[in-house]
Simulated assay, not measured.
Amino acid sequence: MATKKVTVTIPEELLDEIRAEAAERGLSAYVAEALRVKRDRDRLLGLVNWLEEEYGPVTEDERAAAGKELDELDAEHERRRAGGKRKAEEAA
């Protein structure tokens, strides 16, 4: 996949925390994954908004189910990150 270098401004305290958490993967990989997660959530919110326009407000049960799906997506992202770390460690 092609990449492109960009410049962003991030609060210093947040950057320090992110660098500590992203140490092995690197800052770029961490930020790219965070942006993917944010994009996925935004797309889901867009879908919810469209569905509300088409079919009416979302019920609390539907919100709970959507929240569960988001949690499952987060867990899948974490499993993928952990799997990538293990493969890198095995290759080393």
Results as ranks from 00 to 15, higher is better:
Ile10Thr: 07
Asp16Asn: 08
Val31Cys: 08
Arg63Gln: 12
Thr59Glu: 02
Thr59His: 09
Arg36Leu: 14
Glu33Pro: 00
Glu13Val: 01
Ala29Asn: 10
Gly67Glu: 04
Arg36Val: 09
Glu13Asp: 12
Thr7Gly: 10
Leu51Pro: 01
Ala34Asp: 01
Leu14Gly: 13
Glu21Asp: 12
Arg41Ala: 13
Val8Tyr: 12
Val8Gly: 04
Thr3Pro: 00
Ala65Asp: 01
Glu54Cys: 08
Lys5Cys: 00
Glu33His: 06
Met1Lys: 12
Trp50Pro: 00
Arg43Gln: 13
Asp61Glu: 11
Thr59Phe: 06
Gly26Trp: 03
Thr59Cys: 05
Glu60Leu: 08
Glu53Tyr: 08
Leu35Met: 13
Gly67Cys: 01
Leu51Phe: 09
Asp16His: 09
Gly56Asp: 01
Ala66Pro: 00
Glu24Ile: 02
Val31Met: 14
Glu17Trp: 07
Pro11Lys: 11
Ala66Arg: 04
Leu15Trp: 07
Val8Ala: 15
Met1Gln: 10
Tyr55Ala: 14
Trp50Thr: 10
Arg39Ala: 15
Asp40Glu: 06
Ala32Glu: 05
Glu54Asn: 12
Ala66Tyr: 03
Asp61Gln: 13
Pro11Ala: 11
Arg43His: 11
Ala65Cys: 00
Glu52Tyr: 05
Glu54Ala: 15
Lys38Thr: 09
Ala29Trp: 05
Arg63Ser: 10
Leu35Val: 15
Ala32Phe: 04
Asp40Arg: 11
Gly56Ala: 05
Val58Lys: 05
Asp42Thr: 04
Lys38Cys: 04
Tyr30Lys: 13
Glu21Met: 15
Tyr30Met: 11
Glu17Leu: 13
Gly56Arg: 04
Ala29Tyr: 04
Glu54His: 14
Asp16Gly: 01
Val31Pro: 01
Pro57Arg: 14
Glu62Gly: 10
Ala32Arg: 14
Ala22Tyr: 03
Val48Ile: 15
Ile18Asp: 02
Pro57Ile: 08
Ala65Pro: 00
Arg25Gly: 15
Ser28Gln: 02
Glu33Asn: 11
Pro57Asp: 10
Ala2Met: 08
Val37Pro: 00
Ile10Ala: 06
Asp16Ile: 04
Leu45Phe: 09
Leu15Gln: 09
Gly26Ser: 03
Val48Ala: 12
Arg41Ser: 02
Leu27Thr: 03
Tyr30Cys: 14
Glu33Leu: 11
Ala2Leu: 11
Gly67Ser: 07
Ala34Leu: 12
Glu52Asp: 02
Glu54Tyr: 12
Asp42Gly: 06
Leu51Val: 03
Gly46Tyr: 03
Ala64Ser: 05
Thr3Gln: 12
Leu14Tyr: 12
Pro57Ser: 13
Lys38Gln: 14
Ala20Asp: 03
Lys38Val: 05
Ala32Lys: 10
Glu24Arg: 12
Glu33Asp: 10
Leu44Ile: 06
Glu17Gln: 10
Glu24Phe: 10
Glu60Gly: 10
Glu52Met: 10
Ala2Asp: 04
Asp40His: 07
Ala29His: 06
Tyr55Gln: 13
Glu13Pro: 00
Glu54Arg: 15
Val37Trp: 07
Met1Cys: 09
Arg41Met: 10
Gly56Ser: 05
Glu54Gln: 15
Arg36Ala: 13
Tyr30Ala: 15
Val37Ile: 11
Gly56Leu: 04
Glu17Thr: 03
Ala32Pro: 01
Leu47His: 07
Gly67Leu: 03
Gly46Glu: 05
Ala64Leu: 06
Leu14Ile: 07
Ser28Glu: 03
Val8Gln: 12
Leu27Phe: 14
Ala64Glu: 08
Thr9His: 14
Trp50Asn: 07
Asp42Pro: 00
Arg39Asn: 12
Gly56Tyr: 05
